[in-house]
């Protein structure tokens, strides 16, 4: 295919991606229709034991598309606690993630600044951070439920506790690593500590801080699904678990796809912000 090779790499990659997608969907579709068609005539015994009832199975992609179309054309319907549109469920999850996340940022970034500026605090707080950081955020859930006594707030707390560490560590690291020359520029220009923080240290550390924020939002989105499965009520995590209880695997697969899409979108926002504050030395 000589014509293919003359195309720009981006277009080439896109074409290969589409090809892989079609192939994967094709294999998926074919394998499922082949399985379900092989049952044949039922014996009397099979009929008596309920063999004639529709069997739950992994749905083919065509069914998922139909489901997606149905859901996305009316994403915000609300027909009671057990039946809400995908838009509403995702909205709850995003709301929890952002609330917990920005609460964490509001504490982690100033605190990280402090730790980064003071070698003493850096050393003094390091053991606490090292112990708290590897704890699975869901391990906090029972304690949060008991102390906060509110399942919604507990979910937000879990998001808070999981997104605080990367931001805290990266901010401290970024601030501590600001080049001495730049700090000296601030000093020779008689900048006040506040001005030094905002005009020199913050922009210098911004790429590292943004990296921490991007890692955090990724983790928060991973954790919210699990947290909502535990907490229940609303949210995309609850939705997945609820549809599993309903044995509606089409909806489960559809919501898995939506989790991926939203996660990608959140990451893209932070990737954009990261590029905006990046600089070359």
């Amino acid at each position: 295919m000589p014509a293919f090779k003359t195309l720009p790499l981006k277009i080439q990659a896109m074409m290969v991606s589409i090809l892989i997608l079609i192939a994967a969907l094709g294999v998926w579709e074919l394998s499922i229709t082949a399985n379900s068609g092989s049952s044949g005539e039922l014996t009397e015994y099979e009929r008596l034991t309920g063999g004639g009832a529709p069997k739950a199975g992994v749905p083919p992609p065509s069914k998922v598309f139909v489901k997606a179309w149905e859901q996305l054309s009316n994403p915000f319907y609300d027909a009671g606690p057990n039946d809400k549109g995908i838009g509403i469920q995702l909205g709850y999850s995003i709301y929890r993630v952002l609330t917990g996340y920005f609460l964490a940022a509001a504490i982690a970034i100033p605190l990280g600044f402090l730790i980064g500026m003071s070698p003493l605090m850096y050393k003094a707080l390091d053991p606490f951070i090292q112990i708290l950081k590897p704890i699975s955020p869901l391990a906090w859930m029972p304690l949060a439920l008991f102390v906060i006594q509110d399942s919604q707030a507990s979910a937000i707390f879990v998001i808070f506790i999981c997104s605080i560490w990367p931001m805290l560590i990266n901010t401290a690291f970024g601030v501590a690593g600001v080049r001495k020359d730049w700090v000296n520029v601030a000093r020779t220009h008689e900048l006040s500590p506040i001005k030094t923080a905002f005009l020199v240290i913050l922009p210098a550390a911004a790429p590292t801080i943004l990296t921490g924020m991007r890692i955090s939002i990724g983790i928060a989105w991973l954790v919210i699904v699990a947290a909502e499965m535990l907490v229940g009520g609303t949210g995309i995590g609850y939705y997945v678990w609820n549809e599993w209880n309903n044995l509606d695997l089409t909806s489960v697969i559809f919501s898995i796809l939506m989790i991926g899409l939203v996660g990608m979108a959140l990451d893209a926002v932070f990737a954009f912000a990261q590029r905006a504050v990046a600089f070359n030395e």
Binding site: D181, V185, E190, A204
Partner: peptide, 16 residues
């Protein structure tokens, strides 16, 4: 102090 300006060998410009 601003009464004493400094030019460093490595320029020390703020890269952003």
């Amino acid at each position: 102090s601003l009464d004493r300006g400094v030019v460093f060998q490595n320029y020390s410009l703020l890269p952003w």
